[in-house]
Design a protein around this nucleic acid. Structure first.
Lengths: 336, 336
DNA sequence: CTGTTAGCGCCTTCAG
DNA sequence: CTGAAGGCGCTAACAG
C-alpha cells in the first residue's frame, strides 16, 4: 500500500493524496476530493511509511532516550515524563538500553549518527563524566541529563544539592549530629552535587564535616550494603545516613539489619529519590522526591527547541516542582 | 556527508563506495581502492544514513519492544536478553513505553504500521488478553510475550505453571496446608497459568483447593498490599502465600507487618520472579527465578526467523534454563 | 573490477 | 484547486 495506490483508487495525483492526508494547510482541496481520498486510504488500510517520509523531509520525528541500566527505580518517571512530552510535540520516543558501558557508544552511533533519531537524551546515570562527554562529541542534538560539570553540550539538571540539603535537614532536625553520606561513585557529577548538599547542610547547621563519614558506593543495592558495612565499622558509627539513591538505601537497610541494628531506633536513613517501593519497605523509607518526570519532560522540550533551531540556554535546571521530602518511618531521634 | 561526497573525495563511483563500505561480498575491489575509500570516509567522518538505506532495502534492521510499565522489576532481564540477541543478529532494539493502555495501540501503529521497526515484541504484562489480541491484528511481525491462550499470532511463553508448582512445593514441604494464592488480574493469561500451577501443586500434594484462598490483585505493590489484607481477614487466615509477582509480594509483606504478623514466623511467602531487590528485603524473600533473559533472547530470535521468512512454530515455550527456586528467608514451618 | 541506471515511498517547488 | 517533475541518500541489477 503506497501513496500511488491510494492515488489511483481515488483517481487523483499522488501529490494531492500526500497533501490531504497530511492536512497540509497550504492546500485547498475541495471537500469532495478530500473525502474521496480519505475513504480510499481507509479502505485500502493505507498508512504512510515513516522511512520514506523521513528521507524526504530529513527528519524522523523520533527521539531516543539512552539509559544505562533500565532496572533503576528512577527511570520509570523520567521515561514517563519524556514520553508524554514527546507525544505532545509529535515525536515518538524510543528508549535504548546502554547497560554495558561499551554499548553506550554503540547506541549513540546507531541512533544518532546513523540518523535513526533526530536527537537523543542521555540519562547518564552511572556513566562516568568522561565517557558522557565523549559520547556527546560534536553532536549538537544530544542533551545530557543530570551532568552539570565538564559538559560543553546542552544539558539539564535537577537541584541535587538542594535535594540533599532537604534530606539532611530532616536528619538534623531530629538531633543527629554524626551523619554519614552514602555517596554515589566518585567522578560522577550527580554524586558530587549531592555531596555538596551534604556539606552545605552540615555547615549551615554548624556541624563539623568528617571526610571519613562520606563513603563512595555506587548506586545499587549491593553497593549500598557494602558501603553501609564500612560505615558501621567506624568508631563511633554514624547515627544517621543520607543515601544517594533509593537502591543504595535499601542495601544499607539490609546491612544495618544484618548487623543487628534497628531502623530507625539505632540508625536513621533518608534516601535520595522516591518510588512506590519506599512505602513498602520495613520500615517505610523517608525519601527525597525529585521532580524526575519533569526532568524528562523538559529534557525533550529542550531537545525539541534545538531541533527546530531555537536553542535557548545550554544548561537548564529544573526548578519546578521543587524537591520534596517524603516523611515516612526511617528517621527518629538518635539513641546515642 | 553523503555517499557521493565520499565518492568524489576518493574519486570513484558512489556505488563502489557503497559496496566497499558495506563489505559487500560480491565486490572484488582492489585493496588500493578499498583503502582510498575507507580513508576518505574516515576523514570526512562519513556514516551511512540508516533512513536512506532502510528505504532502499525495505528493512530497518531495528525491532521494537513494547512494555506496558517500564517500572516493573522484571523487565530489566527481558530487555537485557532481547538487547543482546538483537545485537547478535544485527538489529538495534528500541523499547517503547506503552504505560497507558490507550497508548499501546498508538505505539504499535507508529512503530510497526508506519514501518519504523521491522517487527515488535509485545511484553504484554498487565494488558488484558483482548487488547493484546487486537494489537496483534493482522501484523505478522509481532510476537507476543507470555500470552498463550486466545492468541492467533506468534507468541512465546515461559513455564509459569511449573514455576508456580516449584514455589508451592517449597511451601508444602515446610508443612503448610492452608496456602493462599495472591494472583494477578483475572483475564490475563499469565495469571491463569500461575493459578493452574497453584492448583496442580495442591492436587499433587493431596491438599484441598479453596476458591476463597485465591485473590486477584494486580501486579504491583499496592495491589499486593490490598490483596494480602483480604487474605488476612479470612478465618482462619492462610499460613502461607504464593504471590504472582515480586512487587505484589513486597506489598503483601508490608500488609503482614502492618497487621502485626511476622514473616516467616506467622506467614510464609514465596514470590514469582526474582530480582536483586529480593535479597535486601526484610526478611530476604524466597523467589521463583524465571528465565526472563532467555525469554527476551528467544523472542527476538523468533521474530527474526519470521522476518527472514523461516517462521517456525507459532508458539514456543522457553524450557531452558528451567525456573529455579531461590531459597531465602521468607519461608518457615507454620506456627498454627 | 567499476560505472550506469533505476528505483525505494514520500514531499515539495513550480506550473497550470 | 490539482498535476508534473525532481530529489532525499542509498542499494542493486546490469553492463562493460
Amino acid at each position: 500500500m503506497t501513496l500511488v495506490d491510494v492515488a489511483k483508487a481515488a483517481d487523483v495525483d499522488p501529490s494531492t493524496v500526500s497533501r490531504v492526508l497530511r492536512d497540509d494547510p497550504r492546500t485547498k482541496a475541495t471537500p469532495e476530493t478530500r473525502d474521496r481520498i480519505r475513504r480510499a486510504a481507509e479502505r485500502l488500510g493505507y498508512v504512510a511509511n515513516a522511512t520514506a517520509r523521513s528521507l524526504a523531509v530529513r527528519s524522523t520525528s523520533t527521539i531516543g532516550l539512552l539509559i544505562p541500566n533500565v532496572s533503576g527505580f528512577i527511570y520509570a518517571d523520567i521515561i514517563r515524563g519524556a514520553s508524554d512530552a514527546a507525544r505532545d510535540l509529535g515525536y515518538v520516543l524510543v528508549v535504548a538500553d546502554g547497560s554495558e558501558l561499551g554499548h553506550a557508544g554503540d547506541a549513540v552511533r546507531r541512533l544518532v549518527l546513523e540518523g535513526r533519531v533526530d536527537g537523543l537524551l542521555l540519562a547518564s546515570g552511572t556513566v562516568t563524566d568522561n565517557v558522557a562527554q565523549d559520547l556527546v562529541g560534536e553532536a549538537g542534538n544530544i542533551v545530557v541529563l543530570n551532568r552539570q560539570i565538564g559538559g560543553r553540550g546542552p544539558r539539564i539538571i535537577e537541584d541535587d544539592e538542594f535535594g540533599m540539603v532537604l534530606g539532611m535537614q530532616e536528619l538534623i532536625s531530629y538531633g543527629h549530629t554524626r551523619i554519614a553520606c552514602l555517596a554515589g561513585p566518585p567522578n560522577v557529577d550527580t554524586s558530587r552535587r549531592r555531596i555538596k548538599g551534604y556539606r552545605r547542610a552540615l555547615r549551615e547547621a554548624g556541624l563539623p564535616f568528617h571526610a571519613g563519614l562520606v563513603v563512595h558506593a555506587g548506586f545499587d543495592e549491593a553497593d549500598g550494603y557494602q558501603g553501609m558495612q564500612v560505615l558501621l565499622r567506624k568508631s563511633p558509627p554514624p547515627t544517621a545516613v543520607a543515601a544517594a539513591s533509593l537502591a543504595a538505601a535499601v542495601g544499607a537497610m539490609a546491612a544495618s539489619r544484618d548487623a543487628g541494628l534497628g531502623i530507625p531506633s539505632d540508625v536513621s536513613i533518608v534516601a535520595f529519590h522516591d518510588a512506590p517501593l519506599a512505602n513498602y519497605l520495613t520500615p517505610p523509607l523517608t525519601t527525597i522526591a525529585m521532580p524526575l518526570q519533569e526532568l524528562g519532560r523538559q529534557a525533550v522540550e529542550m531537545l525539541h527547541r534545538r531541533l527546530i533551531g531555537e536553542p535557548g540556554p545550554l544548561l537548564v535546571k529544573v526548578e519546578e516542582p521543587a524537591p520534596v521530602l517524603v516523611r515516612r518511618k526511617s528517621v527518629a531521634v538518635p539513641s546515642r
